[in-house]
Amino acid sequence: MTDDDLPIIDAHHHFWKLGSGHHPWLEGAHDIPFRYGDYSAIKRDYLVDDFRRDHGRHNVVKSVHMEVEWDPSDPVGETRWLHELHDRTGWPHAVIGQAWFARDDIAGVLAGHAAFPLVRSVRQKPAAAPSPDRFVAGAPGSMADPAFRAGYRLLAEHGLHYDLQTPWWHLGEAADLARDFPDTQIILNHTGLPSDRSPAGIDGWREGMERLAAQPNTAVKISGIGVPGQRWTPELQGEVVRETLRIFGAGRCMAASNFPVDSLCASYDEIFTGLKAITADMPQGDRRAFFHDNALRIYQPA
C-alpha cells in the first residue's frame, strides 16, 4: 500500500456556513483571543466541497465533525444542521455535539443530541487556567467542579463519549475524571495543546499526557499542534507526535486535521504528508490503526 492509498478517517474537522448568526466568534464584530492569533482568513463558509479540495490526493474516506462553538443558546441546532448536510452530501459520517455540563438544561441537551443517529460524543472545553502556575484545583467549571461532574455523569445514560479540549496542565483532573467514570470514553483533543516547546514545557506536557494515558478509557487525537510563525514540518512536530504515540500506544491515537482552523498554520497536505513521514517506520497495522481503524472503532462513523 502506498501512502496515497492509505485510508484516512479525519477524526476532527469542521464545517460551517456563515450569515445566520449561529457562529458568534466567526460572525461577530469582535474577535476572540485565539491561540493562532489572527483568524480572519477562516471567516468564510467552509463546506464539503472546500474540505474535499483541501484533502486533495489524501485518501480521506470518512470524517468526524467537531462542534464549532455554535450559538450556545441552541446547541442541538448545529447537530440538526449537520444531519441535513449529511443527507444532502453524505458528509460528515459522525458528529460531536456541544454540551455544557453545568447548565440547568444539560439533561435535555444530551437527550437532544443523542436522538440524532450520527452523534457519538460531545465536547466541552472546561474552565482552564492560562498557565500551569495559575492552575487551581477544582475551580468552578473545571473537571473537578461538582456541577460539572453532575452533568458529566449523564453521558453514560446515552452511551456518549466525551471529547476534551484543555491545556496539558489540567490533565491530572482529566485522569481523575476518567478514573471516577470508567464507563465513559474520553478523547483528548489537539494532543493536549503542547504550545510551549521549551524543554520544561515539553516535560510538563509529557507528564500530563502520561497521567491521562494511565487510564484505559482514554484516547487522543494528534491534531492542532501548529506553532504560530513556524512551518508545519516533521522536524518541528516529530517529537510531539512520536511521544504521543509512545505514551498512549498506536491503538489509542487518531490522526486529524482540525481543518479549516489549522489552515492558519499549514495546508492539509503539509499536515498529512508530515504525519505520514513521521510514522513511516511504524508497523503497517499500527499505522493503519492511527490513520483509520482507531477512529472507526471509537466513533463508528456511518
Rank of each mutant, 00 (worst) to 15 (best):
I186L: 14
H14F: 15
P75R: 04
N189G: 14
H58Q: 07
P199S: 15
Y152H: 05
G37K: 05
Q300S: 02
G28F: 06
G37F: 10
D183W: 02
A213S: 11
G274Y: 02
Q284G: 02
P92S: 01
A99G: 04
H158G: 10
R288E: 12
S267G: 04
S223K: 15
T184E: 09
V48A: 08
V109M: 10
K125H: 12
Y39P: 03
A219I: 02
T273H: 03
L26D: 13
I202S: 05
R288C: 05
W91A: 08
C265N: 09
V60N: 13
P24Q: 09
R35A: 07
I202G: 05
T279C: 15
I96M: 15
P216Q: 08
R288H: 09
A295P: 14
S121E: 03
Y268A: 12
T244N: 01
A255K: 02
S195A: 05
H55P: 01
R197S: 02
H170E: 05
F291N: 07
V109Q: 11
D4E: 13
Y268N: 11
G77M: 11
D38K: 04
T2C: 09
L47A: 15
Y299Q: 11
D54P: 03
M209S: 10
H190N: 06
G224D: 00
F34I: 06
V241M: 07
L26T: 10
D269K: 11
P92R: 02
D38M: 08
V227T: 06
E270F: 01
P234W: 02
H13I: 00
G226K: 07
R53C: 04
I32C: 08
L47S: 11
W81F: 14
